[in-house]
């Protein structure tokens, strides 16, 4: 292993400060802000609601639609393209991961629309988006199997690190965004970009799981906290 020191001084297995908050948008049925250091993402859930396009409706399950989008001022250089191929691909894999966590069969003929806006990008935006969206779904009262906890892990100068920031993302040899439903022991999103041996991937996934467990805890505390603030006042908790 080489002498890579992380630019922000973190330990290799250390995630950036995490902040999560639900009920941030009044109009949405559920909403959340999720922050990993300077990566800030907001997600809104509308639905489950009537799907007006009848040919897309299913009698067996709800449709899930996801739009991952980076606002023009979220990146170092202004992002001028309205909707990039990268955003389309990410929207697709996020949709699939989130769908896995929703009990879609309970909402036939409807749609669940999830809008994600990356407000400030400092690496790991897709996993932050997934965490925000999962919290927003729980906040919307959508029946689901588990919360999703997602994190990135990568290799830079031969060193495995979790939760890559923008600099590490740009300079890494490889990176893996991964998402779990931790209580069910399921991986719902997995991508890898770069070069790694199987043994390195094994270690990387182990590191990712540990980091995801920490994020999972933050998510649970956030949701409990959103209720406690109301309930505590009356001596229930």
């Amino acid at each position: 292993m080489s002498e890579y020191k992380r630019v922000d001084g973190r330990a290799y297995d250390e995630i950036r400060p995490v902040k999560a908050e639900v009920r941030v948008l009044k109009n949405a049925d559920g909403s959340a802000i999720f922050e990993l250091g300077n990566t800030k993402v907001i997600a809104a859930v509308y639905g489950p609601r009537e799907l007006h396009s009848k040919h897309m409706a299913s009698s067996y399950e709800s449709l899930v639609r996801v739009r991952y989008h980076m606002v023009p001022f979220s990146t170092k250089d202004r992002k001028s393209q309205p909707f990039t191929r990268r955003e389309i691909e990410i929207s697709k894999v996020l949709k699939e991961a989130l769908s896995a966590s929703i009990r879609r069969e309970l909402f036939p003929r409807s749609t669940i629309d999830i809008y994600i806006e990356v407000l400030n990008a400092d690496g790991s935006t897709r996993v932050a988006s997934l965490n925000a969206a999962s919290l927003a779904l729980a906040d919307a009262g959508v029946f689901m199997y588990d919360l999703i906890a997602a994190v990135s892990v990568g290799k830079i100068n031969g060193q495995l690190v979790v939760d890559l920031n923008e600099y590490e993302d740009q300079n890494s040899d490889s990176d893996i965004p991964i998402a779990f439903m931790p209580s069910l022991n399921k991986v719902v999103l997995l991508q890898m970009d770069g070069t790694m041996s199987l043994e390195e991937i094994r270690q990387a996934l182990k590191m990712a799981k540990n980091a995801a467990d920490k994020i999972y805890q933050v998510e649970k505390d956030c949701l409990k906290g959103s209720l406690e603030s109301v309930l505590k006042v009356y001596g229930l908790l």
Partner: peptide, 8 residues
């Protein structure tokens, strides 16, 4: 007895 529960 009441407790707060979350998905899963």
């Amino acid at each position: 007895k009441r407790e707060i529960i979350l998905p899963s």
